[in-house]
Design a binder for these strands. Structure first.
Lengths: 177, 177
DNA sequence: ACCTTGAGTTCCCTCAGGGAACCCCAAAAG
DNA sequence: CTTTTGGGGTTCCCTGAGGGAACTCAAGGT
């Protein structure tokens, strides 16, 4: 779909959208997360066209979010989340939380989440990694970061290489615009 | 774009994708959040076609995520986030966090977030709303919820009506599939 | 030799996204 | 009163992505 190139924008939201910005990709990740790992299962469960599913899987593998593992001597494979992909599932949980709050209606949420640590049905909550207090859209100021000026050279590319935490420091421009 | 109807699926992720599942909507919300509120500004900043921008704005207003406010006696308006929309921006922060970690490369993150509460440059972290411990994709079990069987009747629709917290209780089917 | 199954390809059709030009309205300028 | 300006969209056409169904291919099983 992407007629516009989101990956080149100096915005981590746009770049993330380049990876999972069309609606099938999150659903594929959800399914893989929930244990639906094979081509025909995914196709049947999602109701996606086989052609598009092939493309999406290739794209997700390309971006290091999924990996393909053989499970037989025959040419059979399953798709698994990489570490990079597993962190995207965190995003899906937040997405599900919003849908549960605002779209579930009287019927209530379709899926419940039980937290291993406490054993309770719960939901995710956003907190500041620094002070631990709640951190929402209205609780932050946006500042230009070091990568503000343009797209990154030396992109990590396909490999699920470890994330890099750059030291914060002021850059030039703010949001594009 | 949506040829497939995601809103009818018994999945809060799919339903959320029905609202912001194509790549422009999150970027529009990001811009409105950052203070870009007028049609021509949005169009110029995003590089989106005017036609598609019109459609997206109508869709977002329709779903109660944005609202349109006049700012002049002339027919001029600005777009603002509703409470429902502001909570979607939380999702954008998580998205940005993932992009910062995995896609920013050597250049570092394009935007930094300063938390009002502690004044520090920080990032969001996902925690369990119940026990406060970290809560990630691998830390939860999925269980069928009360709305598991089908799409909800009596959907909140357009209005940014308050969220409903239904009492948890077991339902019938799990994920669709 | 034939059937089955997983995992894709190929082909065609329709509709959504991109681009650019055009339009409407209200205020301000002349 | 007429013209200009500028925000906020419409309209039209073209391309290309998504949907659907049929076809292919390789490896077993019987």
């Amino acid at each position: 779909m992407q007629r516009t190139n989101f990956a080149e924008m100096a915005c981590s939201i746009a770049r993330t959208l380049d990876v999972i910005g069309e609606p099938w990709s999150p659903l594929i990740l959800r399914d893989v997360w929930a244990g639906v790992r094979r081509f025909d299962q995914l196709q049947a469960d999602l109701g996606i066209s086989r052609k598009v599913l092939t493309e999406r899987l290739a794209h997700l593998i390309d971006h290091g979010v999924l990996e393909r593992r053989p499970y037989d001597r025959r040419p059979r494979h399953e798709y698994h989340l990489t570490a990079k992909g597993a962190e995207l599932v965190d995003l899906l949980m937040v997405m599900a939380g919003w849908g549960d709050r605002w779209l579930a209606g009287e019927a209530g949420p379709p899926v419940l989440y039980r937290h291993h640590a406490c054993g309770e049905i719960s939901a995710v909550e956003l907190r500041c990694a620094h002070c631990g207090a709640p951190m929402h859209a209205g609780d932050v100021d946006l500042l230009p970061g070091p990568g503000a000026t343009g797209p990154d050279k030396s992109a990590p590319g396909a490999g699920a290489a470890g994330p890099d935490e750059s030291a914060p420091g002021p850059g030039a421009a703010g949001l594009p615009g």
